[in-house]
């Protein structure tokens, strides 16, 4: 597990689209109403990286997480693990994939089986994968519990007897049982109160370092993402609208949606920014399906935005953005620069 050189491409989504049917068709032979929860998303995850996926509710970030885990199949496009399509895995390859990629679920969604003791739940992945002897597995469970900062006595308890923070730790311990390379965390902190949130965030931070984890953090909390992640992708209506190293994104957001999102997040001891309220757009595809999904809420919308969807373009190295305004602006700047250079020469 430590054999991976850093920056090796581990997991990739290639032009992934996931369309859900919502409701029955109105008339026979017409196409039923549908929602593209994820639309043409391309995303790379390199070893050692910590990728944050942020967006409002309904932006498709959780669906993207599920697609990366293989819980859900993309309608178009594919998800690659180490260069192989995860749908084409053989049984043994799939087992290997399960060992390498684990998910931390939100505790409020019943992430622990209420009828099983903590010990039985944490040891189960080891049982399924038949790792080590019974005694080794037993020891491993106690190791894992202490790693996430839980006393060994908790192993004998049932989930209902634990606090929310403890349960979330158990969920993390279970996800770590198979020593995965990649940990996909779906809103790991959204249900916890602030102090527990901080504990969990710090725990994930420590674990990512000590276990050499590659982290994917799906969250609507910008603070958590800012604290944990090295790279951030912002999702809106199923599309990635901006993707950049965390520092860059939080200091120089380019996309108007990102700017609105950052402006809307509450912060203490910061100068009050001009905050435009974020107009919520659920992922229901516009009737025409053309144009930028943010066009109806964008403060600097142009004619082009309503007629053509912008592509995700790498403007500056490692900084991608999908906005006509920004790209055309930059292009024209660039052209001017080139012109100047031409004149100079």
């Amino acid at each position: 597990m430590t054999g991976d050189p850093p920056n090796r491409l581990l997991l990739a989504a290639e032009q992934v689209t996931r369309i859900y049917r919502v409701g029955a068709r109105a008339l026979p032979f017409t196409s039923p109403p549908h929602v593209s929860a994820v639309q043409n998303v391309t995303l790379m995850l390199h070893a050692g990286e910590r990728l944050g996926i942020v967006g409002e509710s309904g932006s498709g970030k959780s669906t993207l997480g599920r697609l990366l885990m293989g819980f859900d199949q993309p309608t178009h496009g594919r998800v690659l693990y180490c260069g192989r399509d995860i749908r084409e895995f053989s049984r043994t390859e799939r087992f290997g994939f399960h060992r390498a990629v684990q998910m931390v679920f939100q505790d409020t969604h019943g992430a622990l089986n209420p009828r099983l003791r903590i010990f039985d739940q944490v040891i189960e992945p080891l049982d399924v994968h038949r790792l080590g002897t019974r005694q080794q597995r037993r020891n491993r469970v106690h190791d894992l519990l202490s790693k996430v900062g839980l006393p060994a006595a908790i192993a004998e308890r049932y989930p209902a007897e634990l606090s929310g923070g403890q349960r979330q730790r158990v969920v993390i311990a279970r996800a770590l049982a198979l020593a995965p390379k990649i940990l996909i965390c779906d809103e790991p902190t959204s249900a916890a109160d602030v102090s527990v949130q901080a504990q969990i965030v710090n725990l994930l931070d420590d674990l990512a370092q000590s276990e050499r984890l590659t982290l994917v953090l799906v969250s609507h909390s910008l603070a958590v993402v800012r604290h944990l992640c090295t790279r951030v992708a912002v999702m809106h209506s199923g599309c990635i609208v901006e993707e950049a190293p965390a520092e860059v994104l939080f200091h120089e957001p380019l996309h108007p949606y990102t700017r609105a999102l950052l402006g809307a997040s509450p912060a203490l001891a910061r100068r009050r920014r001009r905050s435009t309220p974020v107009q919520s757009c659920t992922a229901i595809s516009s009737p025409s399906g053309i144009g930028c999904a943010y066009a109806s809420a964008c403060p600097d919308v142009a004619e082009l935005c309503r007629s053509a969807a912008p592509n995700l373009i790498e403007l500056v190295p490692a900084h991608h953005v999908a906005c006509h305004k920004v790209t055309t602006g930059r292009r024209s700047e660039k052209r001017i620069e080139e012109d100047h250079a031409g004149i100079g020469a």
């Binding site: 819980f71 998910m103 969604h109 019943g110 992430a111 089986n113 099983l116 189960e124 994968h129 969920v171």
Partner: peptide, 26 residues
């Protein structure tokens, strides 16, 4: 739809384990 069944699937447990041990008792 509960997290625990997703978790059980995420480490590759089979049909019998998923339904016999996790779904049925609940």
């Amino acid at each position: 739809g509960q997290g625990y069944t997703l978790a059980v699937r995420s480490y590759g447990a089979g049909f019998l384990r998923l339904y016999g041990r996790h779904v049925l008792p609940n």
